[in-house]
């Protein structure tokens, strides 16, 4: 009797708590993981974005075209099963952006900062997550709109493991 009542109490609390909680949204489909030597790259995605309608209007004036350029960011998880660290040193796209760079965002004392980085370490026997608010691949000067559910090809270059191409899903901003 004692045990039964204790179980009922627990169940009521669990049920009631789950009634309070919001249901998590299902994550969009993502491409299968890609391996390159000791590296595994999973769930690459790029944030949807609109290219500015007026990007090309002043193509002769480099400052203006730069100042009009739209940007977005790409994310993924990279695992390294090797005993040595590796480094993501470059990312590239074809006919999609004027420049692709590696950046990191940090938040300190409520201030958000973004900086370009030369490389992103994938620790030995570990991994790194490129995600909003942290490391990301930045696409600068988008040449066209990136719409949800389309895929884009990203070429990644690692210091030790070399180069690989991955398909990144475009997700809602």
């Amino acid at each position: 009797m004692y045990r039964l009542l204790a179980m009922i109490t627990t169940m009521i609390i669990i049920l009631a708590l789950s009634a309070c909680a919001t249901t998590p949204t299902a994550s969009p489909e993502s491409a299968p993981a890609v391996t390159l030597g000791n590296l595994t790259i999973s769930e690459p995605w790029v944030r949807a974005a609109s290219a500015s309608a007026t990007t090309n209007s002043m193509s002769s004036d480099s400052h203006s075209s730069m100042s009009m350029s739209a940007t977005t960011a790409g994310y993924m998880t990279i695992r390294n099963s090797s005993a040595e660290p590796d480094f993501l040193i470059a990312a590239a796209v074809t006919d999609l952006a004027e420049a692709v760079e590696l950046h990191t965002s940090t938040t300190e004392n409520g201030v958000m900062r973004m900086r370009q980085v030369e490389r992103i370490e994938i620790p030995a026997q570990g991994g790194v997550e490129l995600k909003p608010g942290g490391f990301h691949i930045m696409l600068i000067g988008l040449k066209r709109d990136l719409k949800p559910d389309e895929t884009v090809r990203l070429t990644l270059t690692f210091e030790r493991s070399g180069t690989v191409e991955v398909s990144a899903v475009v997700r809602k901003p």
């Binding site: 350029s69 004027e98 950046h103 409520g110 201030v111 973004m114 370009q116 000067g141």
Partner: peptide, 30 residues
């Protein structure tokens, strides 16, 4: 060295103004 040229370091709070135009709350980023 970045094609972006410059960035803007900034605080990332969200400010809530109520229906009577009073500033009532601040939410930290995230």
């Amino acid at each position: 060295g970045s094609a972006l040229g410059y960035t803007i370091d900034h605080s990332g709070f969200v400010y809530l103004i109520d229906t009577s135009g009073r500033w009532r709350a601040i939410f930290a980023h995230g």
